[in-house]
Every structure is written in structure tokens, then in C-alpha cells.
Write a protein that binds this DNA or RNA. Sequence first.
DNA 1: CTTACGGCCTGGGTGC
DNA 2: TGCACCCAGGCCGTAA
Length: 317
Amino acid sequence: MPELPEVETVARGLRESVLGRRILSVTLGKTDFIDDPAALEQQLPGRQIIAVERYGKFLLLQLAPPASAGSGGSAPSGASNGDGGSASLLVHLGMTGHIAPHPGSQPCKKHTHACFLLDDGRELRYTDARRFGRMAYLAGAALEEELHGFGADPLEVSAEGFVERMRMRRARVKALLLDQSVLRGVGNIYADESLWRAKIHPARLGARLTRKQAETLHHALRAILEKAIVMRGSSISDFLDAEGEPGEYQRRHRAYGREGKPCYRCGTPIRRTIVAGRSSYFCPRCQRAPRGSAATLPLPKRRIQQRKTAVGRMGSG
DNA sequence: CTTACGGCCTGGGTGC
DNA sequence: TGCACCCAGGCCGTAA
């Protein structure tokens, strides 16, 4: 499940492999994850990829203006950040999305839903088994509108800014970490890992963290994200970077996915509970539950499973 | 107003 | 071997 480090890894890979290439044609398969498939088919051919950026969990393939009269080719030395008129292919990998260039001769993998033929004969292909991802061509005001409303990048936010964001709402710290309007790019893995490192229970209210605790969490989150980027992300489900290589950070996980296994600090078995609607792994000894919380129970809300055939429909009557 | 929570989308992995 | 079920992240509707 690509989060900030995985998306950053992909962005760096694409920067190496497709920056400066021109898209010649677009071939789409299933399109229900694409905002406006026709816009992709109409706008992308002929456009040059002049920058690859990460914004939270989004990839942004910035595109040169169409059919630029001025020969182009000048080094895209950053100057392309002009807000007005910029256009991008926005890509969210969801949980199972992959994007990488392939030789044009290579047969497409299963679940390949978008192919962008490049001017060097390769194809930039998007594969996504579950299509929880998203793709959109956005330009100008629409692009700005799409990106506004997101929170700070956790690698850029100051300690003071982070503390403020943990206190701005009355919500659990885990929910705040996952909320893309508070911080952009953090997902379930790195939320749990940073909380474990900072010794903070996921069900604590963010607003009740001490300043020192919030600062510790900020430092932990930042350190973990940076280390994970160096290790090219975590390959939990089937994350592969833009070179098709898995990451290595999953070997360093201290909480996520370790239910029942001993805490690396104290040996207490890691527990799993549901916080903010997500599986949350924590050490019940290192990360003390807030008073009155039922979150020390292994799975407080384990619901009776219901059949697909509407046995469990709950009418209001 | 706020936050919490269930359900939906999908299909690979798992376990029976 | 087959197949039902769980679960994931983001989003949305609704409850409190």
C-alpha cells in the first residue's frame, strides 16, 4: 500500500526513467478509476513530461504545454513551477497501483489499464488490480483546486506546525496522522510505526498529547519516513517501485503487521485493534491506552460477519 | 458544528 | 481442487 515513502520512491524512479520523454499515444483499458478518460486521450498525446513530483500520496507528472512552438528541449531547471497554465497527469496508486516504463515489445501484465507510448519506444504502463487508485488529467485552476485542502508534508512541517496540527481538532492521534487534510502522505503503516517509536497509543486524543510527546512523534515520523525512503519503501502487499523492485523497509517494521510478535523494546506481544476504522498495531506496554479507552482489548468492535445476501441489513424500524 | 463509524468499491491471499 | 471470506484506503452517508 503505497504511502509517502513508496510514492516518493516511485517519483524518483520515474524522474530517472521518463523525465523529458514525450507521450505519443494513450491506450486505456478499464477506466472507472479515471476522472475523465476522454481528457487523457485528447490531452496527453504530444505532451512532454517535464517534471515528476510527489504531493502527499499523489504522483504528479507535469506536462509541457501542447505543441510548443518554441522548439522546447531547454533544461527544465525548476522554472516550470508557474502555477498558471500548468498541467499534470495526477496518479494515485491506491493500494495495488503500479506505474513503470516497459519495453514496448513486452506483453502487458494483467490488470494494465493505461498505457502511454513514449517517444523512445517504451510504454509507461499503469497496472492496478483493484483499481482503488485514481488517475486524472488536470490543468490550471482544476489542478490547484484538487491540491488545495491538503495538509502539510510531514517532511517539511516544522515541529511547531506539527504540534499545532495534533491539537487543532479533538480526534485520536491516529486519525489525525491518517487525515490527509492534516498531514499529506501518511498511511496506516507509517502512522503505526511512528506511534510505536514515540511510545504513544493510537487512541490517544491528539489534543491531549503533551508538547513533548507531540514533538517526539513529529521527530519519529520524520525519521521513519526518511529512513523508509532510503530503503525504497515497504513492500507489504505487492508494492514495486518504478524499476519493478520491491522496497526493503518492511524488514524494519516494529509494530505494523506484527500482531502477537514480541515488541522490539520490551518483548510484550504486539496487539492489533481498530482505531479510526483501521487496523492499528501497538505495544500495550510501551504505548499506554488513554484512560477509559476500550482499546486495550484485542478487537473491541469485531462485528458478526454478514453474508453478501443482505442477511444483515439493518432497517431503522 | 464536531467526530465516529459502517458500507462500498475490488480481487489476491488465505484457510477451510 | 474449489470457494467463501477478510482486508486494504479513500470516500460518503448517517449517527451521536
